[in-house]
């Protein structure tokens, strides 16, 4: 499903080079649940962005869904992304649209037939327990609700791979546990999950395979 071979990423900010990942290699099989754990600035977001080709590695090879992501054309990148559901660290909900519209928007731009949309949006909202807030606008949502809305948007089109970048980031324990339960359900449905968090306790509680990142290096791969 995912394979990284000696991947490094260095950001160039003008003349300054910022190393974000160094020599990272690992492999994730179909149907796995993998936690990506590391303190702030460890390189989690960078690693995930490499997977859906928002960034290009400075060195090394990356294969996602059997495709060499560095060699893709623009339309191939789009096709790859259609198979991946992403929960962004900053949620990226469109503020001028309701929760329902946010989820429907993605389905519509991907060409889902009109009559299927309502059903699929409500399925996704039910899965994250947000059907009652369908008509709310993102600024009216609590952080937990916003993360769940983002999750609903990511899974509404039934991706093969779910990439979740700190979906529990700013949540209290109870809310975080709720979100984790939802992600587990999605995983149980057959979706491969990559789940990033900076909370080591949360990673431990998940009791899944955990990749530990620190200063851009892969320290441990266990569980």
């Amino acid at each position: 499903m995912i394979e990284l071979h000696r991947v490094s990423k260095v950001y160039s900010v003008g003349p300054v080079k910022v190393p974000a990942l160094s020599d990272v290699s690992f492999r994730v099989g179909k149907g796995e649940f993998v936690t990506l754990c590391g303190p702030s600035g460890a390189g989690k977001t960078t690693l995930l962005r490499l997977l859906y080709r928002e960034e290009i590695p400075t060195e090394g090879e990356i294969e996602v869904l059997r495709q060499d992501v560095t060699a893709l054309t623009r339309s191939q990148v789009a096709a790859l992304r259609r198979s991946i559901g992403i929960v962004f660290q900053d949620a990226k909900l469109l503020p001028g649209r309701t929760v329902y519209e946010n989820v429907a928007f993605v389905l519509r731009v991907l060409g889902t037939p009109r009559r299927e949309i309502t059903g699929r949006v409500f399925d996704a909202l039910r899965a994250v327990g947000l059907s009652a807030r369908a008509q709310a606008y993102p600024p009216q949502l609590s952080q937990g609700e916003a993360q769940r809305a983002a999750l609903a948007r990511a899974v509404a089109r039934k991706p093969l791979l779910l990439i979740a970048d700190e979906p529990t980031g700013n949540l209290d324990e109870g809310m975080a546990a709720e979100v984790i339960e939802i992600v587990r359900d999605i995983w149980a449905g057959g979706t491969t999950v990559l789940f990033a968090t900076h909370q080591a306790t949360l990673a431990a509680a998940l009791k899944q395979r955990t990749l530990s990142l620190q200063n851009g290096r892969l320290l441990k791969d266990e569980g």
Partner: peptide, 17 residues
């Protein structure tokens, strides 16, 4: 801007964007 970013990130075809 926001819409176009989301469209690209979820893999919308370029003409739709």
């Amino acid at each position: 801007r926001d819409e176009m970013e989301i469209m690209r990130l979820v893999g919308a075809p370029e003409h739709v964007v």
